[in-house]
Amino acid sequence: MDAFKIIVLAKQVPDTRNVGKDAMKADGTVNRAVLPAIFNPEDLHALEVALRIKDLFKDSTITLLTMGPVRAVEILREGFYRGADDGILLTDRAFAGSDTLATSYALSCAIREIRDFDIIICGRQAIDGDTAQVGPQVAEKLGIPQITYCEEIVSLNKKQVTVKRRLEQGVEIVACNLPVLITVNNSAAPCRPRNAKRLMKYKHATTMSKQQETGGDYLASSSSHTHLNIKEWGISNIKCDTAQLGLAGSPTKVKKVDNIVFQSKDSKRIEDLDEDIGILMKELIDSHIIG
């Protein structure tokens, strides 16, 4: 039976979709620091696409790769609960301030280090940076084709994958030889829930630096529990040109950030008059609430 080596790229993100009134500062702007850190929603869809391949081809392996601060190990654990086989946390000060090009460069260097893969699956877009650029850029850096906006894998064999893509006005079915990178839309099947047995098994899984931080876990120190150690890679574990990493390796720079003010103190009453509604729409556009 065929088996596939799958790498899933996943990012830990602040939950920007569900900004409730509790995450609002007194001035009406969003307090980003208090937003909960979650598994980027479309990356969960990506994981499900991988898990469905593994359901059909049992000997397949799924490696989750995330780049981020040490805390991002949480999403690797989450991936283990749902069925991922392996996880790598790519973390290093040198990655700080990366734009999408520097991010995709670092991820592609880590993927080269993993070496053996048939399919890379990632989310279409992260809900914080919101660019949807990392997937295609990783594919370009690895010199492999990309299939964006995947809703479903239609068929797969050792040579070729057939994918249903969701476009603006319709769907497209495309085929491509492996290896390939696929980005997954939120119209794809949602991810299965955590598996209770796996939850017990991986509850304490963490990286070495997290273990040292917390004084270490008794079980994790035992060599018979290797699955509790999550791989942690820094720049010394990958072959890379450090000039292409982090802020220095990022062609785009953030010049300025404006917070959007959401709350007006009291409710405003507006009459059904051309002038009043014109003023309202202009105000909403100027404050970037719409438009």
Partner: peptide
């Protein structure tokens, strides 16, 4: 070119530049 765009789910507006490339 000042490239002005929303991010963080529309909660902020960032001005992005590419000075050198």
């Amino acid at each position: 070119l000042y490239q002005i765009r929303p991010a963080f789910g529309g909660n902020i507006i960032a001005t992005i530049i590419n000075p050198d490339c």
